[in-house]
Amino acid sequence: MAGVNEYIVLSCILFGLGTIGFLTRRNALILFMSVELMLNSINLMLVSFSATRADMGGQVMVLFIFAVAAAEVAVGLAILICLFKHVRSVDINKFNVLKW
């Protein structure tokens, strides 16, 4: 069985990929998916710690993160649709009304 270290490194790589995607892409939908990638990497780390420490609290925490991710996606995509109605684009550089 792979030790907890390998899972930590995999989780870090996925989190970093999510960060890179969030900071460099322009399509707002892909930004959403990058955030999902980051949340999933944290889930993986929680589950691997849970299996290492023989503590089921980590798995319960993952289920709460599922709930938060579902809420985030529902509200975020609704906001995105509202923005799309005004701007007719999903390019984040065009959402600049509040930009200073």
């Binding site: 870090c12 989190f15 970093g16 960060t19 890179i20 900071l23 460099t24």
Partner: peptide
Amino acid sequence: GAFLGAYL
């Protein structure tokens, strides 16, 4: 962005 991600 790429630098920050790789740094992280």
